[in-house]
Design a protein around this nucleic acid. Structure first.
Lengths: 335, 335
DNA sequence: TTGTAGGCGTTATCAA
DNA sequence: TTGATAACGCCTACAA
């Protein structure tokens, strides 16, 4: 890895041109004669020169890095999105810098600050609690892509997955299986996403002429532990239900355990549906019926949108439609 | 967020001192009179000055960033480690830059290159396939912490979790429950870790005077899908086994599904043990007996070691001992 | 203890 | 098309 400090200047010297010419070739920022171009490329090769991003950052204001505010870097949900972001950015020579917001407004604010002070060229924000005004404010400094909310502004692009439709599909599936008493576990309603999913659930009930019963709805927090607790609360209310729709797969996993603890079998006693289609969903017992929203694709879309903005184009997100994935955690109501 | 470009120079001006004095205060690199120190701190506060890491990187050679070569950013296993790293580094003002190696030597090499060219102040490498020589070579440029192998060298610190002991504990637990025919699913043996776990398994068998049966050992790859396939291969061999020890939780999850598909019940027909104690392990059905190695702690330990090295101290890793966590996937052998 | 001056490796602005 | 020259924001001798 003999990484001696090979500078642009050395390259220029060897190629017999000025540093500016080398820089121009590197960035394609101006026309350069073919001969010199080749000489420089040759010199770059023999010297093994790699431009120093730090110096570039100082001089040109570009760091070739994109700040990513994620919520919990270790969550299986965000993990897949980060992977998509990383892969997509890499192709354009950018590196993502991930900072966790921990679903905490202060942490998110700090994350933005950290990234801003690192002079990232752009910012991708995955959901979170922070106020829209703050985001719009940051977007004045660097182009920004926000996933999971609707936000308008210059240098600002946002998109959401159609969670509402996804939730409607899931609920409709249960209805088609004959279920009428369908319980629902929401995520933290601070998320637009969580609200959308709840609305999708209500949409489907309405569609089918079923009156929603508030007793069947439990608030939770998108975690496994939360899902398990939710089941406990639901059962303590002593309302009858034959199906349970959880706003994400992680809560569904927790709920499954909660049901199991009460000797309720999935799907024989309770049909269970999740949301997200994490890899895990294939390996739960029984494998989980869920709504696929390709989190990986969300990541690549966000990255692509970012790259579009950076090159001055108007981004355009085209996410795949949500799809219901029927596995074995749901069944026709026993009667 | 009114992030106007507040430079160190402005601070100096406002405080009525020279830029170097401000720098000295910022870095504690030399004694400064109390009066000036206060004046400067005051100025920093009123101006909301935050030093520019990019400029710092160029001038001082320090970027306050640590490169982290992880394998799959989205894996639940690495995710927790990354979280630990992030939290610990943050306390010292460092930011981790994560790049995925994807268990691919080329990718890992590229990751190292990327990180090196970004002038990270240190490198943390989580396992991987890349050759030791290459790592030792990189360590000549920046201090390095390697997790999951034993490596010696200047500016190089490595530590592993005691996987061998962990695996021995797991296997011994099964033996104590009366199992004699214990199948084992290894991870990719390119990992030292995977080898250690296999050795631990063999240790325990030997301890109990059980002759290991190669037919009971299946090679796999640490993924859920791999665990499921492994069960298939095992069953096709038609060897008798009453317990199955998988080298990690993810494979155990896959194995559980594989068993379920063949109508084998856990733990009644087959006792199942995993390794890692991911959060998931608590929510599998039934909850998984496994070996806890706090991946989060591994992350914080790696970060701490890095920080130690950066401040010139000799790092010292003290990881918690592996602990067997008995849940409900194992039971006394039916007789 | 403090300030001055030079430099870190690029890019950007001007002339030529 | 090319090359000087001046930033970029900070750190670090060196001198005072």
């Amino acid at each position: 890895m003999g990484d001696r400090v090979v500078t642009l200047e050395l390259v220029a010297e060897l190629a017999g041109v000025s540093p500016s010419t080398v820089s121009r070739i590197l960035n394609g920022s101006a026309a350069v004669s073919q001969v010199k171009k080749e000489a420089v490329q040759e010199a770059i090769r023999t010297l093994g020169f790699r431009p120093n991003p730090v110096a570039r950052g100082l001089a040109g204001g570009r760091t070739l890095s994109i700040g990513v505010v994620t919520q919990v870097i270790s969550s299986p949900f965000y993990g897949e999105a980060l992977l998509g972001i990383e892969r997509e950015l890499e192709r354009a020579g950018y590196v993502p810098i991930f900072v966790s917001g921990n679903w905490h407004e202060d942490d998110e604010r700090k994350a933005l600050q950290t990234l801003l002070s690192r002079r990232v060229d752009g910012m991708i924000v995955l959901a979170g609690r922070i106020g829209n005004e703050m985001l719009q404010d940051v977007a004045k400094t660097v182009p920004m892509v926000v996933v999971g909310r609707q936000l308008e502004g210059p240098q600002l692009f946002s998109f959401s997955f159609d969670s509402r439709l996804g939730a409607r599909l899931a609920t409709r599936h249960l209805i088609e299986l004959g279920h009428r008493n369908i319980a629902f576990v929401t995520g933290d309603l601070i998320h637009e996403d969580a609200v959308d999913r709840q609305n999708g659930y209500l949409d489907a009930l309405k569609e089918a002429g079923i009156t929603p019963d508030p007793q069947l709805v439990v608030q939770s927090d998108f975690t496994e532990a939360g899902g398990m607790l939710a089941v406990g609360r639901l059962l303590s209310r002593e309302v009858h239900f034959t199906a349970l729709f959880c706003s994400n797969d992680q809560m569904a996993m927790g709920a499954a355990l909660g049901l199991y603890r009460r000797n309720l079998r999935v799907p024989d006693d309770v049909s269970l549906v999740g949301f997200d289609d994490l890899i895990l969903a294939r390996y739960t017992m029984p494998p989980l019926t869920t709504v696929r929203q390709s989190v990986y694709d969300i990541g690549t879309e966000a990255a692509t949108a970012m790259l579009d903005m950076l090159r001055g184009a108007r981004p355009e997100a085209r996410l795949p439609e949500p799809v219901l994935v029927v596995r074995e955690s749901t069944t026709r109501i026993a009667r």
